[in-house]
Simulated assay, not measured.
Amino acid sequence: MHYDVNLSILFTELPMLERPAAAADAGFDAVEMWWPFDGPVPDDKELDALTRAITDAGVQLVGLNFDAGHMPSGDRGLLSSRATSQRFRDNIDVTVGFAERLGCRVLNALYGNTTDDTDAELALENLALATKAAGRSGATVVVEALNSYENTRYPLTSSARAFQVIDQVPGTAFLADFYHLGRMGEDLTALIASHANRFGHVQIADVPGRGQPGTGELDYPAILHQLENSPYGGLVGLEYKPVGPSSESFGWLEAMR
């Protein structure tokens, strides 16, 4: 099993431009991240600086979110609201272009919170636009479910709801975030057995605290063994809030190996 580190939730004690090197120093050769810029269209200097930080560290960018709004304030995506749709569309080519520069092949499009102007058809249209743009560079757009405890207005709170969206936009795939799914009580063993061939990416953290595996309730040795023997052939993203310093949170992985 090949793992990558999500730099938007791990190594946050460091500035973003220092995190790729920290991941490399911890023994990882692949990273992913949420949209790392303040707005949908950052200037070239910002894009170039992060590109250099990733390439100089010798790590591969394997996953990137489209702009999802201001996530610390509770935003969880832009594509389903008429008020934020244009911001999402402005971001598509920037995200796809940045990903293409770095050889990134997985792009995550968060659906967006339910608001007074939510438009399900607009969401599908925007997702299709993103998928078409990503396809030009061989990238796949993924859609994920989030747990309703922390994301009370996010409508896709189960794998079934996410698949309802994915089924309507050819070329998209499922981002199986085992933390969010586990928080919602989904049977992860059954999900892997029945749908691993539809996973475009996998992310992990333990339940309920979102710490590293071994700090909660999920049987990750069994889950990851099953995943390794499933049709899924991609990476597993470490998207947990480390209990202690990030650099000291990987003991579970060494023990498993």
Rank of each mutant, 00 (worst) to 15 (best):
E46T: 11
A49D: 14
L50R: 12
T51G: 08
R52S: 15
D56S: 14
D56N: 15
A57L: 05
Q60L: 11
V62I: 14
G63I: 00
G63N: 02
L64M: 12
A68E: 11
M71H: 10
S73V: 12
R76S: 06
L79V: 04
S80Q: 13
S81L: 07
R82G: 07
A83P: 04
R87A: 12
R89I: 11
D93P: 12
D93E: 14
V94M: 08
T95L: 03
V96Q: 00
A99H: 09
E100H: 10
R105L: 11
A109V: 10
L110R: 15
Y111Q: 13
G112V: 08
T114K: 07
T115Y: 07
D116P: 00
D119F: 13
D119R: 11
D119S: 14
A123G: 15
A123E: 14
L124G: 06
N126L: 09
T131V: 04
K132N: 11
A133F: 08
R136T: 12
R136M: 10
S137R: 04
G138R: 14
T140M: 03
T140L: 06
V143N: 01
V143D: 04
A145P: 13
L146Q: 08
N151M: 11
N151T: 11
T152K: 12
Y154A: 02
S158C: 05
R161C: 03
A162V: 12
F163M: 14
I166G: 09
D167T: 03
D167A: 10
D167W: 01
Q168V: 00
V169M: 10
A173N: 13
F174Y: 13
F174N: 01
F174G: 01
H180C: 01
L181Y: 04
L181W: 06
R183G: 00
G185R: 07
T189K: 05
